[in-house]
């Protein structure tokens, strides 16, 4: 499965468009990480726990998008976009969407 955020892939042709596929996940951080982040707030610097959390959730969102794409019989997802939003305090939504296509 090819995942890309461009509209074309050099050397390949789009045989059929299958429409939009999407995947999303909402994650909350746990209290331990929050505590560490509170400390980091005094000293400054990277919040590794949060970085990991967001990375994991992004992968999860992409995985769900892939599942959808496989379900409709696509072999590639083009023009993928990510978007992040904070739903409530302490939780973030990661959303990935793209166009499922069959590549020749």
């Amino acid at each position: 499965m090819i995942i890309t955020n461009m509209e074309i892939i050099p050397g390949k042709f789009v045989k059929q468009h299958l429409g939009l596929v999407q995947g999303s996940t909402v994650r909350a951080k746990h209290v331990g990480r929050d505590l560490m982040a509170g400390l980091k707030n005094i000293f400054g610097g990277e919040l590794k726990g949060y970085t990991e959390l967001l990375q994991e959730s992004r992968e999860e969102a992409v995985d769900r998008m892939k599942q959808q794409a496989t379900a409709v019989g696509a072999n590639a997802v083009l023009n993928v976009r990510f978007s992040t939003s904070s739903v409530t305090q302490g939780a973030a939504e990661l959303f990935a969407y793209g166009t499922a296509v069959i590549l020749e």
């Binding site: 090819i2 995942i3 890309t4 955020n5 461009m6 074309i8 892939i9 050099p10 050397g11 390949k12 982040a37 980091k40 707030n41 005094i42 000293f43 400054g44 610097g45 990277e46 919040l47 949060y50 970085t51 967001l54 990375q55 992004r58 992409v62 993928v80 990510f82």
Partner: peptide, 23 residues
Amino acid sequence: LPVSSTPMEACLVAGSVVVSVDY
């Protein structure tokens, strides 16, 4: 893309970071 005849392999890459300010 720049015009090229060589076939290319495409793959999504991403980088992220969460950073905080000091007091």
